[in-house]
Simulated scan of single mutants.
Amino acid sequence: MNPSRPSMTFTLPPVPERVRAVVSRLPVRPPSALLALALNRLWWPLLDESARRGLAGRVVELHVDDLGLSCRLVADRSGLHAARGSQAPSVRLRAAAATYWRLLQGQDDPDTLFFERALVMEGDTEFGLFLKNTLDAVGPIELWRRRADRR
């Protein structure tokens, strides 16, 4: 846990089976488009041009195990978008919702979660490392500060 982290943290409750049953039936595109919209607002403006070029055209799939939810994103010059189903992912990340939430808040280190198998990465290892380093460069605290500054 990061001691400089604002006290806005809370734990996600377990996902009820009824919720999972509904969410797991959702098509991939709507939640992907929603996630792209949020990341374009909060994260994309914080990236430098070389990071944006490195992400361009690469599909990242995020799977939230306990929700049965998948999101597929691809970047271009204008930002992130929902990836078409025909585009194979370069990297696939799998974790529980609470794990992603803790990462967003900066409570957990992605390397630790990876070695504990709470966060699983499959696919292009070199691109996965680039993505991790890009996320680390921005950092969760920067995302929260930017959000707090808008209020």
Results as ranks from 00 to 15, higher is better:
residue 69 L to T: 11
residue 57 G to A: 03
residue 83 A to E: 02
residue 93 L to F: 01
residue 62 L to F: 14
residue 82 A to E: 00
residue 44 W to A: 01
residue 95 A to V: 08
residue 89 P to W: 01
residue 48 D to C: 06
residue 56 A to F: 05
residue 44 W to Q: 06
residue 96 A to Y: 09
residue 65 D to Y: 10
residue 65 D to F: 10
residue 79 G to D: 02
residue 43 W to S: 09
residue 71 C to S: 11
residue 97 A to I: 05
residue 67 L to A: 10
residue 42 L to E: 14
residue 82 A to L: 06
residue 39 L to V: 06
residue 73 L to M: 02
residue 47 L to F: 03
residue 53 R to S: 14
residue 84 R to F: 10
residue 61 E to W: 01
residue 100 Y to K: 10
residue 64 V to D: 06
residue 42 L to I: 15
residue 57 G to K: 00
residue 101 W to T: 10
residue 48 D to S: 05
residue 62 L to P: 09
residue 102 R to P: 04
residue 59 V to M: 02
residue 41 R to A: 14
residue 72 R to K: 07
residue 70 S to P: 03
residue 46 L to K: 13
residue 93 L to P: 00
residue 43 W to N: 07
residue 58 R to G: 02
residue 75 A to T: 08
residue 84 R to V: 13
residue 73 L to Y: 08
residue 42 L to K: 14
residue 47 L to W: 03
residue 58 R to Y: 00
residue 74 V to A: 09
residue 83 A to D: 00
residue 82 A to R: 03
residue 79 G to Q: 02
residue 71 C to E: 03
residue 77 R to E: 15
residue 77 R to V: 14
residue 58 R to V: 02
residue 96 A to N: 14
residue 98 A to E: 13
residue 94 R to K: 12
residue 55 L to H: 00
residue 70 S to A: 12
residue 64 V to L: 09
residue 93 L to G: 02
residue 96 A to D: 15
residue 101 W to S: 08
residue 96 A to G: 13
residue 88 A to T: 12
residue 62 L to N: 10
residue 82 A to D: 06
residue 67 L to T: 12
residue 56 A to T: 13
residue 74 V to I: 10
residue 83 A to V: 02
residue 90 S to M: 07
residue 76 D to T: 10
residue 82 A to W: 02
residue 56 A to R: 15
residue 96 A to H: 14
residue 76 D to Q: 06
residue 97 A to Y: 01
residue 88 A to P: 10
residue 100 Y to Q: 09
residue 65 D to E: 14
residue 62 L to D: 03
residue 46 L to E: 12
residue 39 L to Q: 01
residue 53 R to Q: 13
residue 66 D to N: 12
residue 47 L to A: 03
residue 54 G to N: 05
residue 82 A to P: 06
residue 85 G to E: 11
residue 101 W to H: 09
residue 69 L to C: 08
residue 87 Q to V: 15
residue 58 R to T: 11
residue 86 S to N: 12
